[in-house]
Structure formats: structure tokens, C-alpha cells
Write a protein that binds this DNA or RNA. Structure first.
Lengths: 216, 216
DNA sequence: CGAACCGCTGACACGGAGTCAACGGCCGAC
DNA sequence: GTCGGCCGTTGACTCCGTGTCAGCGGTTCG
């Protein structure tokens, strides 16, 4: 049947895409994005090099696709974290902690998102994968923003923090900076400054929590 | 005289190095670091390509050298900012504001330091330029740490923030994240989220200040 | 069984990275 | 004044990764 073979081909295609993305993700993490060649990706995915070009026209699109998968995983963690928290403030911190857990449990995916955030975002035209990525981040921000609103409503977060969405963006920036510094400058922080990375992170979270919580 | 001609040669060398770094800095900022070729740098600096290789064996060392110059400029701004503040807390905020001013007044240099912080720091062997860069960052952290200590001493910063050096590292991470997000995701933040970049930054600083200040 | 289709690949052109022998101008010596 | 040596400089080369395309072989449908 034509439909059956067609669907199986579709399936094989998806499987191949998955193999390529998995191979690229591992190599990006190990060697750094710009060092990885299409030849190496093809070899690890056990495909010929031109075939990789067939699925992904350039490294950027491959990277974006990998980021989308990573973002999906992170988004699920955020939803779970926010759902299991008692108060809005706890939800915000739980999301932050989920970010750190993501870093430790899926370092390869974390690395992708970290690199993506550090990349200049030009203009988002239409519904390209790039635009989907921005949309995905927007959705994630929505989760944080909802947690902040919830905190203001239940009294765990002081009402004068500012616009919840703007605060969420700031928290994203703060947590991102904390995570990126912890990831890229870990050697410097631990050796030169003598601060264990755990203490660094805990101090960071405590500082942020203090800036949000109501009362004194 | 041999000494005179030798010193003039030294001077010419330094001038050539400066020309190369200036050209590379401008191109890095305009096109992104990995897109810039040695040929383009040579052309802009009006030197032959092999000559650029003579001064800088690879792009990394050229980048590090440029970062060192940028770090020097930023360090001077920090010293001035801290000196002109009334209290320790004000000094901390002034340093943060100086970071933003640096971003706006010397975007090319800011871009370099941003890219550097996002880069994985492996191991620092001996007194290579890389190690100097780490040392320079360490010195800058010393300034922030001193400001925090000063704030605790004069009562403007709550004493229970934690170890001043660790707090400084966190503040570095926070500010870095805020700045990086503002720089790379400006289009997304302003268009998709509808938050002006100024409000984003002001909210960020207000949040950080609240987490440090003593009393209520 | 033949034709059309499609996934796949070997092989090519192109361009940037990095290297080196050789050239030319400057300086110090005789 | 001129000769030898030094050093900054460069044209030209190799190597390697990118991106492309014609063509091969297996599968499907008439």
C-alpha cells in the first residue's frame, strides 16, 4: 500500500532526525558547538555526511531543532515544579531549583539552551523553527509569570515587586546568569575564589528569594 | 643607536597589535566572533593575513587580548563608580549601573566580555593571557566584594547576606544575566513581551537592591 | 516485467586556516 | 660607501570543512 509505506518512510525520517540530533547534542556538549563538523555528526549518527545536509541545511537549523527538544524537556520540569509548590513564592523557587536540577541531570540539553540564550536573536520571520523557539521561551516565561502572580495573590510575594511579566524576565536573567557562571566559570570560582559551586548557587537563590518575599 | 631603533620597533609592534585588536573588535561586534576571518581582520587593519598570524597565533589569543583591554576599561569604570558612592549599598548599585553604562557607551567592548563570560573556562596554566584574564576578573570581583563589606560595615547592607565574596559572585552572575538577556534577546523582550528594555533593567536593579538592603 | 520514484552517496568546487621559503628594507660594521 | 646580517613582510602552498550534484541502487506501482 502506498499510504502504509509512506507512513513508514515518515517514521524512518523522524528516527533519522532524532539520531542526528542526539549525535549533534552529545558532540556539541563535548567539543563546543563551533568545533563540531558535519562529518563528525554524520559519523556518530552512522549516516553519510550529505544525508545530514538533507535533513538539516546548516548547523544553525540543527542547533535550533536540538534547542526545541531541550526546551520541551525543561518546560515539563517547570510545569511539574510549579504544580507541586505550596505558595507562589515556593513555586518561583521550585522553578529555579528545577533549572539547576535540569543542569545536573541533563547537562547536554542545558548546555544547548545556555548557548542559545547567549546567541544574538535577530528578527523572527514567520513560523520558522527560530520563531518557535522564541515562542517556546515565551510560554515558559508565562509559567514563571503565573507563579509570581499566584505569589502576589496568596501573599507570599510582596505586591510591589513590579509587573509580574517583567519580574519574570528579570528572574530568568538572574537565574540564567547564575547558571551560566556556574557552568562556564566553575574552575575559576572554585579554585581562584575558593567558593564551592553549591554554596554559590544556594547564596544566589537565597538572595533572590529575599528580594521577592513579603513581610520582613 | 641600537637601543633607539629597537625601542621604536617595539613601539611599531605595539601599534600594529593595537590596530589588529581594534579591527578585530569592530568586526567581532558587527558580524559575530565565529564569522570573522583572519583575512577580514587583516584587510580592515590594512595588513597582510600572515602578518596577523605573526602577532596572534589564533583567533582565541586575539580574542583574549581584546578582552583584556576591554576588562581594563570596565575596571576603571568600576573603581570610579565605587569611589563616588555614599554608602556601600550605593556603591554596589553604582557598579551595576556602571556596567550598564559600559554596555551603552562601549558596546563593542561589552560584547567581548559578554562572549568571554559565556565561554567555557578550562584550566588556567601559568601566567598565560588566559590566566591574566581570570586574574583581572578576580580583581574586579575584589572591588564588588569590598563594596559589599563596606555596606555591611556602614549598615546599608543587611549583615546576613552571606559571605561577601560569594555574594559578589552571585551579583556578578545576576548582572551578567540581566545584561546578556538585554543584549541578545532585546528584540524578543520588547516585541514579544512588550517590555521596554529600560524598564526591564530598572526592575532588575530594584529587585537586587531590595535583596541586599538592611531594615525594611 | 518495466518505469518511475526516492533515499542515498562518491566526488567535486569553494573558501578559510595555518605554514613557509623568499624578498626587501633597515641598521650596524668595516 | 658598501657589504653582510637581521627582521618584518608576503605570495603561494597545503589541509580541511562546507555545501552541492549527478548518478547509483533498491523499492513501489502500473
Amino acid at each position: 500500500m502506498s499510504t502504509e509505506s509512506a507512513s513508514r518512510r515518515q517514521e524512518d525520517r523522524e528516527k533519522a532526525r532524532g539520531r542526528i540530533i542526539a549525535a549533534a547534542t552529545a558532540l556539541f556538549f563535548r567539543h563546543g558547538i563551533e568545533k563540531v563538523t558535519f562529518g563528525a555528526i554524520a559519523k556518530k549518527a552512522r549516516l553519510s555526511r550529505p544525508l545530514v545536509y538533507f535533513y538539516f541545511p546548516d548547523k544553525r537549523s540543527l542547533f535550533v531543532e536540538a534547542c526545541l527538544r531541550a526546551g520541551k524537556s525543561l518546560g515539563q520540569r517547570f510545569v511539574q515544579a510549579a504544580a507541586s509548590a505550596q505558595s507562589g513564592l515556593d513555586a518561583v523557587e521550585a522553578i529555579g531549583r528545577a533549572y539547576v536540577a535540569f543542569h545536573e541531570e541533563e547537562p547536554e540539553l542545558f548546555f544547548l539552551l545556555m548557548a542559545n540564550t547567549a546567541t544574538d536573536r535577530k528578527l523572527l520571520d514567520g513560523d520558522s523553527p527560530e520563531a518557535c523557539l522564541a515562542q517556546q521561551e515565551f510560554d515558559v516565561m508565562g509559567l514563571v509569570s503565573a507563579a509570581v502572580k499566584r505569589g502576589i495573590a496568596d501573599g507570599s510575594i510582596r505586591p510591589d515587586v513590579g509587573d509580574p511579566l517583567t519580574v519574570s524576565l528579570c528572574l530568568w536573567g538572574f537565574t540564567h546568569g547564575l547558571a551560566q557562571l556556574g557552568a562556564t566559570q566553575r574552575a575559576t570560582i572554585e579554585n581562584l575564589h575558593g567558593t564551592p559551586i553549591g554554596r554559590f548557587r544556594d547564596t544566589g537563590f537565597a538572595t533572590l528569594r529575599r528580594s521577592l518575599q513579603s513581610g520582613n
